[in-house]
Amino acid sequence: MAIAEDKVLDARGLLCPMPVVKAGKEIATLEPGQVLKILATDRGSVADVPAWAEDTGNELLEWHEQDGIFVYYVRRGEEE
């Protein structure tokens, strides 16, 4: 099932901590309920993005790997 995103963050080629730092900045520009799609190549992001989403009250809707690129869909939460 395809998830419609409101914004895309291209974090490919970036290493820890920048994918999460940039994701934090980008999701702050969205309204609660809107979805940020994140593209990353950092293998650590598999642990970092879900942890970041949980700690910030945002919801990781789905993630998958495709051709070495990790794709995340995070919905901005209501908190804060």
Binding site: P17, V20, V21, A23, G24, K25, W52, T56
Partner: peptide, 11 residues
């Protein structure tokens, strides 16, 4: 610096 920026990015 990595931990501080990440902590700040998580609010």
């Amino acid at each position: 610096l990595i931990l501080a920026t990440t902590a700040a990015a998580t609010g």
